[in-house]
Design a binder for these strands. Structure first.
Lengths: 224, 224
DNA sequence: TTCAAATGATAGTAATACTATTCTATAATA
DNA sequence: TATTATAGAATAGTATTACTATCATTTGAA
């Protein structure tokens, strides 16, 4: 089973809705691809225009600048991840099982139930790991936050926090543990790939040890 | 008591050793100040030259580019933190106490024992929190890592990992837990300040709740 | 004193990060 | 069908960034 999915994004993320035209969808599609290939620092709208087969000026009609495009795609990812979480925990009672689902989702070990033709989610996941933090690690955080640009991230975090509270209603740090889980999952994957001495996962391609570490971290913390 | 401190840095971090001249030390001093004020994205060598009262070209004689300068100052910070850790745990037997010291150091709750006249460590700490990850979140990680630019970070991580093993010799993820602790301490401080809904610390200026969270996280994880 | 190295002063280039204008195709509407 | 609004293409242009190069001047070590 596959569900067609269209995610409605905060209008402040763009000047013109990229989901409303073929060009817009191409900008997203090739944008994700190009950021992944050359990294966010070397990524420019001029290079993207060449990939898409359009002009720089046309891309600027969709996004104010490349940072907004990055925020758009990472935010899209968080929204999609929350959908996945809702879907996969829908019929579950046991909060332990739900937490396991969260960890599997964050380590990308779950079969995707939603299809979006122009977005390659596994490449997007790579971007979130390598570049995602740059969306909020800027001098514009406060302003962007006021424009609700990070709401999907916070919503996801809050949903995970609520699952933690289901598991242990006395737990004092549900949101911090949730944001720590999300960040740690991604950072440890990055370290495993690029700075493996900062982990204990060797250089196998297995994600199993990471899953083990995250489960240990979360359940030990919650089991008061 | 205060100890004069001079940290010898990896020569690949610079073109000319900034510690060897007044101009070099000024570049570091005002560089830290300026990155903190305007953020790494808006920071340029031209602006820095104006602050220092020198020319762009002179700064380029010390550092290849602004990213190298960022790596220099963050790496300096990791080295300094490891010195602090060695100093403050020197006479301790109990690994639990050592871990508490690690957490206090990461949350900047420890009196500094080393003096470096041209480096404001509390501003530098701010940079490490906001911009530090950008030093390794680039397409050059692998190459920079081969040049040993991240060795001080890894050394610190390894030292913390060894303390964890003292505390619990059976523990399976000492390095991952150490890197998670370092990253989490900084990220939660950032969230507390800019995206407080991702934490449970309210908006007080207290670091106490963060210390509590980190202690909980680490000791629960280590107490098998 | 001399001589090498560090710095200053100045200039210049290619790329980046945009903005503006004009034209054309096309899709909606009257 | 004619009208008109809009998206996008084509082109040009500007200020800033991220450098590199050259040459003159200062200064500190031998």
């Amino acid at each position: 089973m596959e569900l067609q999915l269209q995610i409605k994004m905060n209008a402040r993320l763009y000047l013109r809705d990229p989901d409303s035209s073929q060009l817009g969808r191409n900008i997203i599609k090739h944008g994700i691809k190009l950021i992944h290939e050359i990294g966010f620092e070397d990524f420019t709208f001029k290079k993207l225009a060449a990939e898409v087969g359009t002009t720089e000026a046309s891309i600027y009609r969709y996004f104010e600048n490349k940072h907004r495009l990055l925020t758009y795609v990472t935010t899209w990812f968080w929204t999609w991840l929350e959908y996945q979480l809702i879907f996969h925990t829908n019929n579950l009672r046991d909060p332990k099982e739900k937490i396991d689902i969260v960890i599997m989702l964050l380590t990308f070990e779950v079969q995707d139930k939603f299809t979006v033709e122009h977005i390659d989610k596994s490449i997007l996941h790579g971007i979130v790991i390598c570049e995602g933090d740059k969306a909020y690690l800027t001098k514009n955080v406060t302003e962007d936050n006021k424009s609700m640009l990070f709401k999907p991230y916070k919503d996801l975090c809050h949903r995970i926090a609520e699952i933690f509270l289901e598991y242990n209603p006395e737990f004092a740090f549900p949101h911090s543990l949730a944001s720590t889980l999300i960040e740690t999952a991604h950072r440890q994957m990055y370290f495993k790939e690029h700075l493996p001495r900062l982990t204990d996962f060797g250089n196998s391609t297995e994600v199993r040890p990471l899953v083990g570490f995250l489960q240990h971290l979360i359940f030990k913390s919650l089991d008061d």
